[in-house]
């Protein structure tokens, strides 16, 4: 899956593509090796890497190879119809032998220890779930995967998952077989000590969020596709942020985030993903107009303009000063 929020680039790793395989309709998997022959850093299920494409785009893709094998990394990429060039570039321009710069693995979707898991994947959302199932199986946990897609041919890793774990654990739902994934049914009965991990398109995740309101708080963990890719900020000018709790004012340059600028000024912001997907840094707006660039706030929240996520969101064009409750 792709996460498309800008983030401060960590150290990069030079890799070369080992193999490219067609995993399903419009889905390719890429296996990457380090050009220096060394192992990749250790990573945990749910992690992703930034992939720096030659056309200047940076895209995030979840890792779907075994965590134990650090000699290679595998990612799966769906060609999205509305792609602004990320997934299309991957499909059309990357071949075995192509060199590719990536970030070290990072994790916004960690598998929290629990006794039982329910995994729900929609389409290419299967990728971060694959290492999670491996970890759950290795630890002898009770788990099940509900995996839905348009048709079996559009669903990557289908056969190998069924072969590896069996049909009891791998429940397949294909729309064209008149067997749609019925989320209401699979989430009707909350289970004690069970966490729900879901990844897939926004509509599916919204439905899951609604249904999981009947589950224990915190049971649901999701990773969002960002349906519309985040383009350049509308406001390319520096702007000021006043920290209302101290009266300090910091200037935010076009190439840094509010959180970065605030932290450099010595103030604290509680933040986690720094990619506009987790909501930890939600901050109250006291004055000024934001440009919301996150994937957490609802349209209603964004319209109300009372809070923002300063890890990705900025001052709107024409607004030179934000006053935040920091």
């Amino acid at each position: 899956m792709t996460l498309t929020a800008p983030s401060k680039a960590p150290a990069t790793i030079d890799t070369v593509i080992d193999s490219v395989d067609r995993a399903a309709d419009e889905v390719v998997t890429l296996v990457l090796r380090r050009t220096d022959g060394a192992n990749f850093p250790a990573w945990e299920p749910g992690a992703h890497v930034d992939v720096h494409l030659e056309n200047g785009l940076i895209r995030q893709y979840s890792l779907c190879s075994p965590t134990a094998d650090r000699s290679t990394l595998q990612i799966g990429v769906l060609r999205t119809p509305d792609s602004r060039g990320g997934s299309a570039f991957v499909h059309d321009n990357l071949w075995p032998g192509t060199e590719l710069t990536i970030s070290a693995p990072r994790n916004n979707f960690p598998l929290v220890k629990s006794r039982k898991y329910m995994f729900i994947a929609g389409g290419i959302g299967i990728t971060p779930i694959i290492p999670m199932m491996e970890a759950a199986e290795a630890a002898g946990k009770e788990w099940v995967l509900h995996y839905g897609g348009r048709s079996r041919t559009s669903m990557a890793f289908l056969d190998e998952l069924v072969t590896k774990y069996g049909p009891e654990k791998i429940r397949i739902y294909a729309n064209d077989e008149d067997n749609m994934l019925d989320l209401t049914q699979v989430l009707a009965m909350p289970r004690a000590h069970m966490l729900v991990y879901a990844c897939g398109p926004g509509g599916m995740l919204n439905a899951i969020e609604d249904l999981c309101m009947g589950w224990p708080p915190g049971a649901l963990h999701i990773e969002r596709f960002v349906a519309t890719e985040l383009g350049a900020a509308a406001n390319s000018e520096p702007f000021e942020v006043e920290l209302a709790q101290t009266g300090t004012t910091v200037t935010v340059q076009p190439d840094e985030t509010i959180v970065d600028a605030v932290e450099q000024a010595g103030a604290r912001v509680l933040s986690s993903c720094r990619a506009g997907v987790c909501g930890t840094c939600e901050t109250r707006i006291i004055a000024g107009e934001p440009e919301h660039r996150d994937a957490v706030l609802t349209e209603e929240d964004k319209a109300a303009g009372e809070v923002m996520l300063p890890c990705v969101s900025r001052a709107a064009a024409g607004c030179s000063r934000l006053v935040l409750d920091l």
Binding site: A188, M189, P190, D210, L211, M213, G214
Partner: peptide
Amino acid sequence: PPIHTVMRRALT
């Protein structure tokens, strides 16, 4: 659950 589940969903 499942009686609790729908009521909790409505409330949350």
